[in-house]
Amino acid sequence: MNGIEIKEEIGKGAFSTVYTGRISDGERKIAVKVIDMTSASKSGRLRLRERSLQREIEISTKVKSEYCVRLCTHFQEHNFVMRRYLAYEYMPSGDLQDFIFKNGKLEQSEAQSVISKILSGLVHIHKLQIIHRDLKPANIFLDAERGSFKIGDFGLAIESRGAVAWFGHVGTAGFIAPEVYLRQSYDERVDCWSLGAIYAFIVNGKPLFYNGEKEVIRELVLTKRDKCIQEAISEMDSLGQSLIKSTLCDAESRARSAAIMTLF
């Protein structure tokens, strides 16, 4: 099938299933994301889903960094009109969320090394005027043997194209910036908030704004974040505190990714 051999299922989302695979003319292992467009077609949202998928492909094609998961190829199988296939670089150690839940929190120096790699990928995509909009531990993928940590899943990403602001409620509870919750205008610094929340997660072993209910998490971010942050940074070293203070703050005070890089 287009030179791709699909193997076992390794993940499943609302509209897609991910399999391991292999490019037929070599030994390289890949991750194949299969998107089923049937439900979108039945609900009359096929055109919207097609545009969203095309945007993901265009953005993933532009992103070329060793700190971002690479799109190898994409295609539509002729026998299955409602299926689209995206073949990505395979990351054998899963994602950062599962890694922390299985192995526990990281030491601060190790966590800072991980964050510096994620930040390198973030600087790259921001230079391309791309906003990820769903940066979270589950979208950071690992190759533990090589010490690789890479940003993946650009399904909600957008190209700002020089625009000064965007609107729209997107992201994952616990890693969403306040301005997104408030449906205010925002820019690429929403990703920087998420970066700070990821750091707090990997050094504490749990999300900073932790509660099972999305509405409660929203209220923690909007009304009690200072208390949550003070508790989190009390045992952090100076670099960790600087990272948190420069990211988990109001949008107008929040550092951009290139400025955060100067901390390391």
Rank of each mutant, 00 (worst) to 15 (best):
Lys224Trp: 00
Lys245Ala: 08
Glu179Gly: 07
Glu66Thr: 10
Thr20Cys: 12
Gly171Phe: 04
Ile125Asp: 07
Ala259Lys: 15
Glu110Thr: 13
Phe264Pro: 05
Ala258Asp: 14
Tyr67Ile: 00
Gln129Lys: 12
Ser238Thr: 15
Lys117Phe: 10
Ala40Met: 08
Gly155Asn: 01
Gln241Leu: 00
Ala232Leu: 04
Tyr186Gly: 01
Lys150Asn: 04
Ile176Gly: 00
Glu213Ala: 13
Glu145His: 09
Lys7Ser: 09
Ile4Met: 12
Ser246Tyr: 05
Leu243His: 00
Phe201Ala: 09
Phe80Gly: 00
Ala138Glu: 14
Val123Ser: 05
Met1Tyr: 13
Met82Ser: 11
Asp98Ala: 11
Gly196Arg: 03
Ile59Lys: 08
Gly240Asp: 03
Ala87Phe: 07
Val170Met: 13
Ile198Arg: 11
Glu5Leu: 11
Leu119Ile: 12
Phe167Tyr: 13
Gly152Leu: 01
Ser116Glu: 02
Thr20Lys: 15
Ala87Trp: 04
Arg51Leu: 12
Ala173Ile: 03
Ile59Leu: 13
Val114Arg: 09
Ile233Gly: 03
Gln184Pro: 00
Ala138Tyr: 09
Ala144Asp: 11
Ile125Pro: 04
Gly196Val: 03
Glu252Ile: 13
Glu5Arg: 10
Ser41Arg: 15
Ser238Pro: 01
Phe175Ser: 02
Leu128Val: 05
Asp226Ser: 09
Thr73Arg: 10
Val164Trp: 04
Ser93His: 06
Leu142Ser: 02
Glu5Tyr: 07
Leu248Trp: 08
Ile100Ala: 08
Ala111Arg: 01
Cys68Met: 00
Ser185Phe: 10
Val221Cys: 00
Glu235Thr: 15
Ser109Lys: 14
Ile30Gly: 05
Pro92Val: 00
Glu56Gln: 13
Glu188Cys: 12
Gly162Glu: 08
Cys228Lys: 09
Thr38Ala: 05
Glu50Phe: 07
Glu89Gln: 14
Tyr186Ser: 04
Gln54Phe: 04
Thr223Ser: 11
Val69Phe: 01
Pro207Ile: 03
Glu235Pro: 00
Ser246Trp: 03
Ile118Gln: 08
Thr73Cys: 12
Asp143Ile: 01
Lys136His: 05
Tyr85Pro: 04
Glu215Val: 03
Lys127Trp: 09
Ser113Trp: 03
Leu208Asp: 02
Lys214Asn: 11
Ser113Lys: 14
Val34Tyr: 06
Leu222Lys: 03
Ile35Ser: 06
Asp250Tyr: 10
Lys224Ile: 00
Ala40Thr: 04
Gly44Thr: 02
Ser185Trp: 05
Ile140His: 06
Phe167Ser: 08
Leu128Met: 13
Ile30Asp: 05
Glu50His: 04
Asn211Gly: 02
Ile229Gln: 03
Lys64Met: 07
Glu8Val: 06
Gln184Leu: 08
Lys62Trp: 01
Leu208Arg: 01
His169Pro: 00
Gly44Cys: 08
Ala144Val: 13
Asp250Ser: 12
Arg256Val: 15
Met1Val: 14
Glu89Pro: 07
Glu215Tyr: 09
Arg225Phe: 07
Glu66Leu: 10
His78Leu: 03
Phe175Trp: 10
Lys64Asn: 15
Ser253Asp: 15
Val164Ile: 10
Thr262Asn: 10
Ser41Tyr: 14
Ile131Gln: 12
Arg49Asn: 08
Leu71Gly: 01
Lys227Phe: 12
Leu195Lys: 02
Gly104Trp: 06
Gly212Asn: 13
Thr17Ser: 06
Gln97Asn: 10
Tyr210Glu: 13
